[in-house]
């Protein structure tokens, strides 16, 4: 288990390094007129040069990159060009918002998919039809249309939840839930269809395996065979699918945040991008990839815990 996890941590670090390096060189290397954007069209060339010097943008790009890396290693991601707020602080304060939506959505996706997959494998018929229906709907209606429709129905017409805004958990757990449940459900819909189909397929495969017949021959109940034995063995492919889904789920959350005006990474990153606030953009990238890597590590551990072959290798 330990070597396996070390390998996964290594792969995660490679991913973080590659993605942030690509982002760094593409954005810092694009000759964006940062100082001009900040100071406005009236600024003189001299003022611009001074600001560029202060921001360190006149140095060679490799030097800037290593300075950024050195900062990262000390927990310093620089300051926003516009607000001077340290990027680390800004991201840390937005972390609960993004985590709320993403983790709630991941929990919904897992719970509903497992349930649908199990019932589908055991019963077939109706659940298969429902899964087909959901998956067709998610392909036919782009996420924004679904999001708008759900906002219209649940927030505007029925007024069950607020249409926009975020309430922190400390402030009021009930309102917190109301403010994140709709975005989380919208994020989950696409993943559920695919994951449930995957779990159902793996379960059907497992149920036709020899060991299931042997368990049956010993009088073990169908319930235990399905929920204890088959589900556990089917969890491997399910986790693989889920860990890939989590990446797109996280990506989509950035956009859902914008629709619901939730002050998380999505909104922060969106504003930073619009203003060419390079340190903030890099910070969002780093934290975003980091979150994906951590989540996938959690999934790996869960999957290894369920699979003795992985755990003991």
């Amino acid at each position: 288990m330990i070597p396996f996890l070390l390998r996964r941590v290594g792969a995660g670090l490679v991913l973080i390094t590659v993605v942030t390096a690509i982002t760094f060189f593409l954005t810092y290397g694009a000759n964006i007129p940062v100082a001009r954007n900040i100071l406005g069209p009236a600024a003189s060339q001299e003022q611009i040069d001074i600001l560029n010097g202060q921001l360190g943008l006149n140095r060679p790009i490799l030097e800037q990159y290593f300075a950024w890396i050195a900062g990262v290693l000390q927990g310093d991601l620089g300051r926003s060009y516009y607000t001077s707020e340290p990027v680390v602080h800004a991201l840390a304060s937005r972390l609960p918002v993004t985590l709320s939506v993403v983790l709630l959505s991941a929990a919904i996706t897992l719970t509903v998919s497992i349930w649908l997959g199990v019932v589908g494998a055991a019963r077939g018929g109706v659940v298969d039809a429902i899964l087909q229906g959901i998956s067709t709907i998610t392909f036919v209606f782009p996420a924004i249309i679904l999001a708008i429709a759900m906002v219209y129905v649940f927030a505007i017409s029925l007024k069950l939840v607020p249409a926009v805004g975020y309430t922190s958990f400390d402030h009021s757990p009930g309102q917190w839930f109301a403010s994140v449940i709709l975005p989380a459900i919208i994020l989950s819909i696409g993943g559920i269809a695919a994951l449930a189909a995957q779990i159902r397929g793996s379960l059907v495969d497992e149920l036709s395996k020899d060991y299931v017949r042997t368990l049956r021959s010993r009088g073990v109940s169908e319930r235990s065979i399905l929920l204890k034995h088959a589900l556990r063995n089917a969890s491997g492919p399910g986790f693989t699918t889920f860990s890939l889904q989590f990446i797109s789920l996280f990506g989509a959350s950035l956009f859902i945040e914008k629709i619901f005006a939730l002050p998380g990474y999505g909104t922060y990153g969106f504003n930073a991008t619009m203003q060419f606030d390079l340190p903030a953009m890099l910070g969002v990238t780093l934290f975003g990839v980091g979150l994906v890597v951590v989540m996938n590590l959690v999934i790996d551990i869960a999957s290894g815990w369920l699979n003795p072959k992985v755990r003991m290798s």
Partner: peptide, 18 residues
């Protein structure tokens, strides 16, 4: 498989200036 784990949406968003 590395590319598959790229958070595509972040990059599409952040690389917009490019």
């Amino acid at each position: 498989s590395l590319l598959m784990t790229f958070p595509a949406m972040i990059l599409i968003m952040v690389l917009q200036p490019i």
